[in-house]
């Protein structure tokens, strides 16, 4: 991968890698639309220079290949409407430990803003995806 070291990870993913599943909302760390997993941890890719991601494993929504139980549950429960927040929401949710309470799920998503759903269907989707994985 070649890119200027100070280029935002978000732009490298979208422009150099052609992975446009990662969205830009606010560009200031507030909305979480640009969330990716860096070595398994949710981060805002709008606040990370490319240089700081080199040598790390970056997981974007494409990396879940449409097969993650969360993706299915978001569709079924109406956890996605306009969809701008959804990739970031799902990646942040994927990092919440199993067995988390509703309060812990809320905390895990405190950095992700959704303007459409009012969150209830998102929490429901996450709880559903989790219970299914336990079976």
């Amino acid at each position: 991968m070649q890119a200027p070291p100070m280029k935002r990870l978000l732009d490298v993913l979208r422009e150099e890698c052609g992975l446009t599943g990662t969205k830009e909302g606010c560009g200031e760390g507030e909305c979480g639309a640009c969330t990716v997993l860096l070595d398994g941890m949710p981060v805002n890719s709008c606040l990370i220079p490319f240089a700081q991601a080199q040598g790390s494993v970056v997981t974007t929504i494409e990396g879940l290949e449409g097969r993650h139980p969360l993706q299915d549950a978001f569709v079924v429960e109406g956890g996605a409407q306009c969809g701008i927040c959804t990739p970031g929401m799902i990646l942040a949710a994927a990092a919440i430990p199993r067995g988390a309470t509703l309060d812990e799920i809320r905390l895990g998503l405190a950095g992700n803003i959704c303007r459409c759903t009012g969150y209830t269907s998102i929490y429901r989707a996450i709880e559903k995806a989790r219970s299914r994985r336990h079976r």
């Binding site: 760390g29 860096l38 949710p42 981060v43 805002n44 942040a92 990092a95 905390l107 950095g111």
Partner: peptide, 9 residues
């Protein structure tokens, strides 16, 4: 401070 994304960095 912030959400988890900010706490992680």
């Amino acid at each position: 401070i912030g959400g988890v994304q900010i706490q992680n960095r």
